[in-house]
Write a protein that binds this DNA or RNA. Structure first.
Length: 409
DNA sequence: GTCGGTCCTCAAGCCACACCGAAAG
DNA sequence: CCCTTTCGGTGTGGCTTGAGGACCG
């Protein structure tokens, strides 16, 4: 018997919603995700029938179980007796499919109509606004602390604030970044600052150089943390990339490192994405850690969703909508497994190589000098009198005059 | 191996005020 | 619609402070 639905607490949970980080029974799933247009876009999949915590991404035909990536890896790794089991991908879906449509998506589940017609569905029409908000966001906010990264825009702002840059902190960071390599070194030493900060907070636009540089630096820092992510020493970045630069990174071996996942990362990569891509090659412990740190993105679907956070500047094709709903990706609509889980990635190799080229170019041309946005303000600051470094009112005693290098006392 | 003291590095914050952009008249 | 005024928020650099890490006995 599985865990109970997070919403009604009565029925057995069958569906996992990444956006809400919630396990729902089918009828509550329909109730919750029919509340409004945004909730309809949430991507859902089956709940892992082994751990009952993570979204399933494969179905073991032999055991007749839906498994998350971690449980699948544990159950079907090469040294496990179940390694020969036949599996099939569990598709994600969005919207409010009927029982018949769900049956089409998940052909291995034969009793869906009876499950869907359970008692919970009767509440659809009578849901109050409060109910709806609870349905859509309650579980999300309730589990924010468990989410390393959140895909919903509102969640991004609310959750995990310790990993987000405050607006003022960004200006400080920009200021300090301008100090050169020293800043880079310190940034490496404080990876927790490499979270996402919305463009609004930064007061930047995508077409702004500042915006691009911000993303680029973030990307670079992430990449330079590969050693921690992979547990493999790469003292020299060249060692990691070899002569092929970022290309060589994607030649890593392992079940999670197929070309599709590489594309997923390359398109919009992030450290989290890399962590998860690398996960299947690691130990069970590492795998579990990865799961815990990224509860909502444990299967291959996460790669695209989380990666929006720091690599968007590279692709240049991300839209606001992509930030707002992890499950809303058109690539995840019903009937199609995540494209990077198939050998034939939809991302053309030409796009990939162009992205690589842009990355290389940007890395060549980036500069760490301080950037003064308003020369007039700098000019004023340069002549302003100070006491212990602080500006003082005009006419007040000062201990430092930038113009005369003299002291008044 | 652990503890306490010292030294060093670095991020954050402070300060005044001209400038900027939005809103109001 | 255009111009002027008002007003709140922002950015600027040198210095201090406190936190945290490194080092040593």
């Amino acid at each position: 018997m599985g865990y109970l639905c997070d919403f009604c607490g009565e029925q057995r949970s069958m569906v996992y919603c990444r956006s809400d980080a919630a396990c729902l029974c089918l009828s509550c799933d329909r109730s919750v995700h029919s509340a409004n247009a945004l909730s309809k876009r949430h991507s859902r999949t089956l709940v892992c029938e082994r751990c009952n915590l993570q979204p399933a991404f494969v179905r073991c035909v032999e055991e007749n179980l839906s498994l998350c990536q971690n449980c699948d890896w544990v159950a079907h790794s090469s040294f496990n007796s179940g390694s020969a089991h036949k599996t099939q991908a569990v598709n994600c879906y969005s919207g409010c499919p009927s029982a018949d449509e769900l049956s089409n998506i998940w052909s291995f589940l034969l009793d869906l109509p009876s499950v869907v017609d359970s008692t919970c569905e009767q509440g659809i029409g009578s849901m109050s606004i409060a109910d709806k908000s609870q349905a859509n966001f309650g579980t999300t906010t309730g589990s924010n602390n468990q989410q390393g990264l959140c895909s919903d825009a509102s969640t991004l702002k609310q959750g995990n604030k310790s990993n987000l840059w405050k607006g003022s902190a960004v200006t400080k960071a920009d200021k300090k970044r301008a100090d050169g390599n020293r800043q880079i070194e310190s940034a490496k030493a404080t990876p927790t600052k490499m979270g996402f900060s919305g463009a609004k907070e930064l007061n930047l636009r995508e077409d702004d150089d500042y915006y691009e540089d911000f993303n680029m630096d973030e990307l670079d820092l992430n990449i330079e943390k590969y050693e921690e992510l992979f547990g493999v020493g790469h003292n020299d970045p060249q060692h990691l990339f070899n002569d092929d630069g970022i290309d060589s990174l994607f030649e890593m071996k392992g079940p999670g490192a197929n070309s599709s996942c590489q594309d997923a990362y390359l398109a919009e990569g992030s450290s989290i994405g890399l962590e998860n891509i690398a996960q299947p090659t690691g130990s069970n412990a590492a795998s579990a850690d990865s799961m815990m740190s990224c509860k909502t993105e444990p299967n291959a679907c996460f790669a695209r969703q989380t990666s929006n956070l720091s690599f968007s500047g590279l692709t240049g094709d991300s839209s606001t909508g992509e930030y707002q709903d992890c499950g809303a990706s058109p690539m995840l609509v019903m009937g199609e497994p995540p494209p990077w889980c198939t050998p034939e990635s939809s991302l053309a190799s030409s796009t990939r190589s162009s992205a690589v080229q842009r990355y290389k170019d940007k890395k060549k041309t980036r500069k760490f000098e301080k950037r003064v946005r308003y020369a007039t303000r700098k000019a004023r600051a340069d002549v302003r009198k100070r006491v212990k470094g602080r500006f003082v009112k005009a006419g007040d005693a000062f201990d430092y005059d930038p113009m005369s290098q003299t002291r008044s006392f």
